[in-house]
């Protein structure tokens, strides 16, 4: 059989069908978010798919208003918490990971391979088994119920260090020596030479950190007990399990809000992605 015939008869259908099922949740999410709830719900034959924003206004109203000093819909409070966590966390990841990666990739010191091995090895450990002691620890530190309780444990980021180390190893070696001969301090060598050269790697890390923190679920679920400190993920799943019952239109509207920032970051930085993806795309779903 010729390649082109095979393509048309077999490969294309397989790709289209698997692609369709992969995207089915997303397609259904978009449809449900923008179609009036009752036309989805009642299975009436005269379905009219007129796009509408009523699910969004329903969601914003029904999710309740915060009672603190700023009185807005809780959805916005949660959105703000999620953004704060993702932006702040990504920023700290970039600093901490790039420092460690610089040491592992460009400097030599006793125990380097052992420590790097430990970091990489920790990728092979199931993180979730530490959930119970981690929660007890956060209580002792007094940061349960607090965004910091979600942020700080996430800063032990093996995968980011690994990615950046791999990246920094590919940088040319001689400019460091040249810089050192110029009498530059170690700290300035890192901030003014290594960091600017590592921008592509850091960009990839930005995307993945943001995505990873944004989509975090178990830790915030356990750590954040009060509705005013929920993240969007925890808040929306809470609503879907309790107060929203059958209002799937509202839940899907919330899910749409939830995917917007990650999709924006994804499409903005997509060009820089391929390099990073190869090493980094290992948070499986």
């Amino acid at each position: 059989m010729k390649m082109s015939a095979l393509k048309n008869l077999f490969i294309w259908p397989v790709l289209v069908i698997t692609g369709f099922f992969s995207l089915l949740p997303l397609i259904w999410l978009l449809l449900s978010a923008f179609v009036p709830e009752n036309s989805l719900a009642l299975l009436k034959p005269n379905l009219k798919f007129l796009p509408t924003l009523e699910n969004f206004s329903g969601l914003v109203q029904a999710s309740g208003r915060s009672t603190g000093t700023i009185q807005v819909s809780r959805i916005w409070i949660w959105f703000f918490n999620s953004i704060l966590l993702a932006v702040g966390g990504t920023f700290l990841h970039l600093i901490i990971d790039s420092m460690a990666a610089y040491a592992f990739a460009r400097r030599s010191f006793p125990g380097r391979n052992l420590l790097f091995g430990l970091i990489v090895g920790s990728l092979m450990l199931p993180q979730m088994v530490t959930l119970v002691p981690l929660y007890l620890l956060l209580i002792r530190l007094g940061i349960n119920n607090h965004l910091a309780g979600v942020l700080l444990p996430g800063l032990a980021d093996a995968i980011g260090i690994f990615l950046l180390t791999q990246f920094m190893r590919t940088l040319p070696i001689d400019m460091e020596d040249a810089a050192r001969l110029d009498g530059i301090s170690e700290w300035r060598l890192y901030t003014q030479i290594i960091i600017p050269l590592s921008v592509p790697g850091l960009t990839a890390l930005t995307i993945f950190s943001f995505q990873g923190i944004w989509n975090q679920f178990v830790l915030p679920l356990i750590v954040l007990q009060r509705s005013q400190s929920f993240t969007l993920q925890v808040g929306l799943s809470y609503l879907s399990q309790t107060e929203f019952g059958f209002h799937y239109g509202w839940i899907m509207a919330g899910a749409f809000i939830m995917i917007l920032p990650v999709f924006m970051v994804f499409f903005l930085f997509q060009k820089n992605l391929d390099k990073g993806l190869r090493i980094y795309s290992i948070h499986p779903s």
Binding site: S22, L23, L24, P25, L26, W28, L29, S32, Q211, W214, N215, F217, Q233, L236, S237, S240, Y248, I251, M252, A255, M258, I259, V262, F263, F266, L277, S281, H283, S285
Partner: peptide, 18 residues
Amino acid sequence: YLPHVTGVVVLSLTWAWI
């Protein structure tokens, strides 16, 4: 890769609805 970006929480909520 898109569903991967979406995250499991959104996917699960959507599947529950499906």
